[in-house]
Amino acid sequence: MKYTEEHEWLREEDGTYLVGITAHAAEQLGDVVFVELPEVGDTVSKDDEIVVIESVKAASDILSPLDGEIVEVNSAIEDEPGKVNDDPEGDAWFFKIKPSDTSPLDDYMDEAAYKTFIG
């Protein structure tokens, strides 16, 4: 698992990456009530705002951690946004991206570094 300073996690699956938000981020957001995901087939650039999350507190944007193509989205969390609070680092992944450039991964944190980052 790799982690970004935007509190996203990335998990490799056969050359693609599943992306979601960390348990820490889900806790900070509070109860999630709305998720809007990108479309399968979208070509995205790193730092594009591609997911909107609304919690009981506020709206947040989730940035793409990589350049690439969206190859799958987890529609189940659009139907049941509360899953993001229940299992943020498991079933409640957001999208799967096929990267065109994996070099940003070198800058992302491992679990130990992320734990230090969030204090």
């Binding site: 509070g30 109860d31 009530v33 009981v56 507190k57 509360g82 609070n85």
Partner: peptide, 9 residues
């Protein structure tokens, strides 16, 4: 602003 139960509950 909230207790451990959370806003929705």
């Amino acid at each position: 602003v909230q207790y451990p139960l959370g806003v929705l509950k």
